[in-house]
Simulated scan of single mutants.
Amino acid sequence: MPQGTLADIQGSYIIAQTPFDDRGAVDLTSIDSLADFYVGHGANGFVVLGVSGEGGKLTPDEAQSVTARFIARAGGRPVIVGVSNPGTAQLALLAKQAMDQGAAGVMIAPPGGLRTEEDLLGYFSTVFGMIGDVPTVLQDFPGSTGVWMSVSSILKLIESHPQIQVVKEEDLPSLGKITRLREGGGRRVAILTGNNGLYLPQELGRGIDGPMAGFSHPEMLSGVWRLHSKGRVEEAHDLFDCYLPLLNYEAQGFWGVAARKEVMRRRGAIRHATMRMPGPKLGPQHMSELDLLVRRVERAVANRR
């Protein structure tokens, strides 16, 4: 059986950004303030070195430093580390390093190039044979990986590999797939969802355990989950609606991540909004758009009180 358990996790698991200084170097001090910002706004745990966290732009030494800093600042909250990699040997090394540093588990997505269910099952059999009993989040994100996993394939993976304790479901459309996974029987795993949280209220209605997403206002993610879990569904939707225009603006790939970082800089979470190259830079029009969106969010939230 796996070293620990993630199967019972619920709540808001933030896809953490990686802060850089104005020259593009990793800003470890801002990791402290960012982790405090996330926790102060209701985060139950973190995912580091994800796609939107710019994990692929870090050197191996930087990746270890970022992971260690988040774990040290998390106050005992689970930290999950993205270790997806085209090479299984490198993936296994990254997983070992993460667990040695005190991670609660790792997140793995299938690499591009897998075309059949046989390819998929064979790949994960190899991976789990190499990494052993490491609690794992299986990331289903064909929009990024190009690999489509059917519900039956995911259920086969869950039954074959007890290491899989969470499915991060962000195939689109997500709602029907969540329902089929929940109705599929077998061993229960947690289901968390991404896609920037754009469909969070509906996904909660389908039985997910919480969001695993990034947003410049993480209090929305935790607040909507908390209200919904208490049966206050209409209130959860009302809160979500306050943030939707800004949330939608941040759902523009890496342009959206740049916007997210800028908003979090304004909120004091990080010192600089830098994205490491290759990455977009916001222009004056983007800044004006953010001025308007943030102002409208603040007014909408204030009007709820």
Rank of each mutant, 00 (worst) to 15 (best):
S125F: 04
H161L: 14
G223Y: 07
R182V: 13
L282T: 01
D119R: 07
R206W: 01
T18N: 02
I208S: 08
D140T: 08
V66L: 13
K281P: 00
G56Y: 14
R187T: 10
Q64R: 14
H286Q: 07
Y123W: 14
A98M: 11
S229L: 09
R267V: 03
G11T: 06
G283F: 07
T116H: 05
G24P: 00
A92Y: 05
E234H: 07
R77F: 10
F254H: 09
K230C: 00
P2E: 09
V297R: 06
A190H: 01
G56A: 14
G102W: 02
M264A: 14
T59C: 11
L293Y: 05
Y249D: 03
Q285T: 11
K261N: 13
L155G: 02
P78R: 02
L94E: 10
I31T: 01
S33Y: 05
G55H: 05
G112M: 13
L239N: 02
D100V: 11
E159Y: 02
Y243G: 07
A103F: 09
G197N: 11
F46T: 02
D171R: 10
G45F: 10
W148N: 09
R296W: 02
L157I: 10
H161F: 15
T193D: 06
G40L: 11
D241Y: 01
V263Q: 01
A72R: 09
H286P: 00
G207L: 09
S12C: 15
T145S: 15
L244Q: 07
G45C: 12
D8A: 15
A74H: 01
L155A: 14
T193N: 03
R276S: 11
E262A: 15
M212T: 05
G279L: 08
R206G: 04
P110H: 13
G184H: 03
L94N: 11
S30N: 09
G56S: 11
I270K: 02
R232T: 01
V48E: 04
T5P: 00
M275W: 03
F70T: 05
G102N: 08
V257Q: 10
R304L: 15
D119N: 14
I71G: 03
P111M: 15
D140H: 12
G24H: 00
E169L: 15
G143P: 02
F37D: 08
A190Q: 04
R276V: 10
S84F: 08
N196W: 11
S30F: 02
A109N: 04
F215Q: 05
R296M: 13
L200E: 05
A273M: 08
Q10T: 09
T274M: 14
R296E: 15
L28P: 00
T179G: 06
M212S: 14
P111T: 08
E235Q: 04
K57M: 14
P142S: 13
Y13C: 06
M99Q: 04
K177A: 13
Q165V: 09
A258C: 08
E203V: 08
L155I: 08
T274K: 10
A68W: 06
A72D: 08
T59P: 00
V47Y: 06
R265A: 14
D21I: 01
A43Q: 03
Y243P: 02
H41W: 08
Q139L: 13
P60Q: 06
E159S: 15
T18D: 01
S30L: 11
D8Y: 01
V263T: 04
P278G: 12
Q17N: 11
P19L: 12
P162N: 09
G112S: 14
M107Y: 04
Q139I: 07
